[in-house]
Amino acid sequence: MESVESETALLTTLYEMLGHLEASGANLERGNWTLAQAHAAHPTAEYWAVIEPALATRNLTAVRSPLDAYFTATRSQSVDSTTHLEAARQALRDAIAAIAGTGPESTRTQAAALAELAESIAAEFAEGVENDQIVNIEEYQDAWGFFQVLSAELPRVLDAAPTSGREAAAEARADLESLSRGPFDQFIDQLGTRVIDADSARERLAHLASAIRAAFGISKSTGPTPAVQVATIRQMLSDALNLYRSGLTDQAYERAANAYLQGFEALEPALLERGHRELVERLELDFKAVRDAIREGRSVEEIAQLIAKVNAGLDEVEEVLA
């Protein structure tokens, strides 16, 4: 039997994938094919390697086909893109429902996943918005898309909160409403646009996550120290290189993807809080370069050089977070 934390992490990832589709769809409605395609790529390019083993054990890997079909449609600017988008959305919703199941413990697990989603929104928002203005449109839209999923899923979950958690559930609803009327009131696709109540958004999202957990009596798990986290990331990258050297390309890609999604992403909020936006953005690109090189079948030497570049950036991370 897998742990609740494992189920929670899987659900959170699927919620984020659905959020990327929401952002993609909003761009699609505005005829912005470039950003529609960028967001459509994330579910498979960024997340798939991480969750495929867990989906395989549940016979849910068929969700990949509609995701690929939608990405292909956006890339070719197909007139059927909207149809493929809805099919991809539904495939993710079905997978979420299959994993979540039913019953009180299921609702509690969904609540834990939605609390983590709220924290993911805060992290993406912090990267996308600075001084009340959008400075990274894709990251802001990630936050917006994730929030659409949170808004759709959370009210039903809060309705099932136990009697002891009703006060906290009411606080969570108030936070959700405030955020809906504030920073996530409308979809934005222009850099430099001012965002309503941006200065309080991260605090409100943190309180929302805390209120969700309080409503269901969930304790937030404490993660490793930054030093331990960085050491884990370095080991994952080393593993990826060794796997690639052995000809195990898929496993190497999965390990490299985990180094970012399960490693560096957790450090981003602390780095942003300390004013190191450029370091975060640079390392995000460096991690992506490693993944892309593995996928494209570049030489072992080139991938080793790219990993060395990431490790140099991690040296800076350790200094900042020491």
Rank of each mutant, 00 (worst) to 15 (best):
E2H: 10
A9P: 01
L10D: 11
T13S: 13
H20Y: 13
G25N: 11
A26H: 13
T34S: 11
A36Y: 01
A41Y: 07
P43S: 03
P43T: 02
P53C: 08
A54E: 14
A54L: 12
A54Y: 11
T57Q: 10
N59W: 12
A62K: 07
V63M: 13
P66G: 06
D68E: 15
A73H: 03
T74Y: 01
R75F: 05
S76C: 00
Q77Y: 06
V79R: 14
L85S: 02
L85M: 07
E86V: 05
R89P: 04
R89V: 05
A91K: 12
A95R: 14
I96A: 05
I99W: 12
A100F: 03
A100N: 06
P104G: 05
T107C: 03
T107N: 14
T107P: 00
R108E: 05
T109G: 09
E116V: 01
A123M: 11
E124A: 13
A126G: 12
A126I: 02
N131T: 08
N131A: 11
Q133R: 15
V135Y: 05
V135D: 07
E138Y: 09
E139P: 05
Y140R: 09
Y140M: 02
F146A: 11
F146R: 15
L150D: 14
P155M: 04
R156F: 06
D159F: 08
P162Y: 01
S164E: 10
S164M: 00
R166K: 15
E171N: 05
L179E: 05
S180H: 04
S180P: 00
G182M: 12
Q186M: 08
F187H: 15
F187A: 07
I188F: 08
G192N: 10
T193R: 15
R194Q: 08
V195Y: 00
D197W: 11
D199F: 00
D199Q: 11
E203M: 04
E203P: 00
E203D: 12
R204Q: 12
A206K: 13
H207D: 12
L208E: 09
L208T: 11
A209I: 13
S210C: 00
I218K: 10
I218S: 06
T222V: 15
Q229H: 08
V230G: 00
A231Y: 04
A231W: 05
T232E: 14
Q235M: 08
L237P: 09
L237A: 09
A240P: 02
A240T: 06
Y244Q: 01
L248D: 13
Y253N: 08
Q262M: 06
Q262F: 05
E268Q: 15
P269E: 07
P269T: 10
L272H: 05
E273M: 05
H276G: 04
R282E: 06
L283Q: 07
D286Y: 09
V290K: 02
V290A: 02
A293W: 01
A293D: 03
R295D: 12
G297V: 03
V300T: 15
I303Q: 10
V310D: 07
G313M: 04
D315N: 13
E316V: 02
V317T: 04
E319D: 13
L321K: 09
A322F: 10
A322M: 10
